[in-house]
C-alpha cells in the first residue's frame, strides 16, 4: 500500500469516526446532568462497541480463556515466569523509542540497560536479572506518547479481539505495530518463529489477565461498563507513569440526608 493509499484510508477512518461521533452527540439526553455524564463517559459508539464486546466475549469464552486456563494448569511456574520475562523483554525496544520521544531520558536509560542486562545475562530475556540490580520494568507505547503530547484520548472503542481502546490508543497501536524495532530486527526470521512468539505473547497476556478480568466480571452488574471504567483508569495510570492519585470518593461527597 503506497503513502497516498494510506492517506485515503486514514481520512476515511476519521470521516467515519466523525459521523459516528456526531450521531452519538445527537442522541445525547436533554437533561444537563445526563448530558454531562454522557460526555464524561465518552462512548458515542456504545451500541456498536457492545456488539463487538459480545463477539469478543464469545471468542474469549470458547478459545482464549480455555487456552489461558490450560496454560495455567499445565505449564510449570518457572516456565510461565520465563515466558513472561521473555515477552516483557521484547517490549523494551518499543519502550525505549517512546521514552526518547517523550524526552524521558532517565527512563530510556533504565530501559536500555534493562534490555541489555536481561538479553545477555538473562539469556534472551528468559530471566529477569535487571530488576534485582535496580532496573525496574516499565512500558511505554505510542498511545502514551500521544497523551504526553496532549492528544485527547477520543471516544471509547472496543476493538475486535484486542478489546478496550480509544481512538488515540488505536492509532498508537497501529504505530506500535508498524514501528516496533523488534519487527525490523526479526524481519528475516522464519515465519513460524514469529508466529510462535506472537502466540506466546497472546497466551501470556490472557493468562496475566485471568484474575483481574474474572474479578471485574464477578463484582460487576454491567461487565461492559465496569471494564470500560477500569480500562480508562488503568490507561491514565500508565500514562502518569504509575502515580496513584486520590479520587473524589469520600467525605467530600454530599451528606447522606
Amino acid at each position: 500500500m503506497n503513502v497516498r493509499a494510506i492517506g485515503r484510508v486514514t481520512r476515511a477512518c476519521f470521516a467515519a469516526l466523525a459521523i459516528f461521533a456526531v450521531a452519538g452527540c445527537a442522541s445525547l439526553s436533554q437533561d444537563q446532568a445526563d448530558r454531562a455524564e454522557s460526555i464524561a463517559v465518552n462512548d458515542p459508539f456504545e451500541p456498536a462497541n457492545r456488539a463487538v464486546f459480545a463477539l469478543n466475549e464469545v471468542i474469549d469464552t470458547i478459545l482464549l480463556r480455555p487456552i489461558a486456563i490450560a496454560y495455567r494448569e499445565l505449564v510449570p511456574g518457572p516456565a510461565k515466569t520465563a515466558v513472561f520475562n521473555f515477552v516483557r523483554n521484547l517490549s523494551l525496544p518499543l519502550t525505549i523509542v517512546n521514552d526518547v520521544l517523550q524526552g524521558e531520558w532517565d527512563r530510556a536509560d533504565t530501559a536500555t540497560r534493562r534490555f541489555v542486562v536481561n538479553s545477555v545475562a538473562g539469556i534472551g530475556g528468559l530471566f529477569d536479572i535487571a530488576t534485582d540490580i535496580g532496573l525496574p520494568h516499565h512500558k511505554e507505547d505510542f498511545g502514551q506518547t500521544f497523551a504526553t503530547l496532549e492528544v485527547v484520548p477520543g471516544p471509547y472503542l472496543v476493538l475486535p479481539i484486542l478489546g478496550p481502546s480509544s481512538t488515540r490508543h488505536t492509532f498508537g497501536r497501529v504505530l506500535d505495530f508498524l514501528l516496533d524495532p523488534v519487527s525490523f530486527a526479526s524481519a528475516s526470521a522464519p515465519f513460524e518463529a514469529k508466529m510462535a512468539v506472537r502466540g506466546l505473547t497472546i497466551v501470556d497476556q490472557r493468562y496475566q489477565l485471568l484474575g483481574p478480568l474474572d474479578e471485574v466480571k464477578r463484582t460487576s452488574l454491567d461487565y461492559y461498563a465496569a471494564l470500560r471504567s477500569a480500562y480508562r483508569q488503568r490507561r491514565d495510570y500508565e500514562i502518569r507513569n504509575k502515580d496513584q492519585k486520590p479520587t473524589d470518593a469520600g467525605a467530600s461527597r454530599p451528606p447522606v440526608q
Partner: peptide, 24 residues
C-alpha cells in the same frame, strides 16, 4: 474512602457500573 489498585479506584469503578445500570 477508597482503595486504588494499580490505578483503578474501587469507588470509581463501582460508580460507573451502578450508573450504567441506573441509566439502563
Amino acid at each position: 474512602t477508597d482503595i486504588i489498585i494499580e490505578g483503578v479506584s474501587l469507588v470509581v469503578s463501582q460508580r460507573a457500573d451502578f450508573s450504567s445500570i441506573i441509566r439502563q
